[in-house]
Design a protein around this nucleic acid. Structure first.
Lengths: 220, 220
DNA sequence: TTAGATACTTAGATTAATCTAACAAATTTG
DNA sequence: CAAATTTGTTAGATTAATCTAAGTATCTAA
């Protein structure tokens, strides 16, 4: 069974591979805030346990077992986030730190009961998919708001970044998942967009923000 | 801040002191399933951090800070047990292992929300008191059933042992906290007692069991 | 195409938590 | 009370996870 530390490495490898494709030792080290030699020796350890394939100076690749193990940790993390928000009254900006700890709890029934109580959710509070109990993960094909056109109506469905600062920024503008946005204009100079929703008749969102908002087109 | 390991030592010291008074290095080592040298060096470490007082060959004594730190870990443990039983549908025999892990989570709001959702409970599912947020613990004065007299009516209020095996034994006889028991007889030879409750007109309980059942006298 | 920069590895040290072996103090008991 | 037993301590080793320093491989770009 993986230690908490090993679980964190598996999770990082999984997430980095999804974001970037190939994952180098330095990517991994940076992501986990450890030195390269530390990441290097842990990768060798993970390899010995059959979770990753690795050859000197080559990218690190999760094996099938490694992917499954990683997905199951991510499952625990995202189920926990959903539970904290839906059942315990946490804000979506407060759940990450707690979930980072609870994801390492070994207690199948605990997470099964969360899953049941939540009605078997498929996404977490930030719109990321929750892997199933077999470690299978459903991929959605959402677009960044930044790639949408003026005049379109879209629904905010997920985020590519769930840092506390970004979530607090969204809270400040009453932006939440499920909201319908109308795209009124885009500024050619800096790619910022003006949108409206609910009782917000005109909000300007920077390119940086628009890239992090994932949407589904619903109109025009 | 105490590591999980340190928290476990503090908890053991607190519980052992309550059960036995003086706590030796060997008591501690036995209780935590570690060797005496391990317990010895951890006690020195806890002393350096101001949680225990210790002199060579003398009993280990928690300081005020040590007692408070221990009580706050026990608070997290017992709140978690109550949450698992009352909010997540666990049986009282299933909660210990999970609570042993969750008690080490550092997330004040998580436990505050549990407390609120449970209506600020004062006892856990096994009748043990839950320390308050300041680490103060309310002591009850319950009697073991074994010390009660034939003819008395008593209410089952707590247990002195909450091992899975004992709890499953109680489950098998539908014995649970809050139940009123009538004491019909006691066998002089082995101190076993015959009691009745609910639709159980006659159950024989061994001395070992009677010592572990804590009650409040309500009649005769 | 080779010099310089970047990425990676090796070597060796550190810390927390554990162990066993050996010795020392304290307690119990004949 | 002295011997035997129990309890506690010291010394030294181990493992997981981390680090820094130093050296090596790979990539990039003049």
């Amino acid at each position: 069974m993986a230690s908490s530390t090993e679980e964190n490495y598996l999770k990082s490898l999984f997430n980095l591979a999804n974001e970037q494709g190939e994952v180098s030792i330095s990517d991994l080290a940076q992501n986990l805030h450890v030195s390269m030699p530390t990441a290097n020796s842990m990768v060798k350890n993970l390899q010995k346990q059959g979770w990753v394939g690795y050859e000197k100076y080559k990218p690190v690749i999760l094996t099938q077992e490694g992917k499954k193990a990683a997905a199951l940790v991510i499952r625990k993390h995202r189920l926990t986030e959903m539970f904290l928000v839906k059942k315990m009254g946490f804000g979506w900006e407060e759940v990450h730190e707690v979930a980072e700890q609870i994801e390492h709890i070994h207690a199948p029934k605990f997470f099964e009961r969360m899953d049941e109580m939540l009605g078997f959710p498929t996404i977490d509070p930030h719109g990321s998919p929750i892997p199933d109990a077999q470690g299978r993960i459903q991929e959605f094909s959402y677009l960044p708001l930044s790639s949408c056109k003026v005049g379109q109506e879209v629904q905010l469905t997920a985020l590519t970044n769930s840092s506390t600062e970004f979530l607090e920024f969204l809270n400040g503008r009453a932006l939440r998942l499920g909201l319908n946005l109308k795209i009124h204009s885009r500024e050619a100079y800096d790619q910022s967009m003006v949108v409206s929703y609910d009782d917000h008749p005109s909000e300007t969102l920077s390119e940086k923000v628009c890239e992090r908002l994932l949407v589904r087109v619903i109109g025009k």
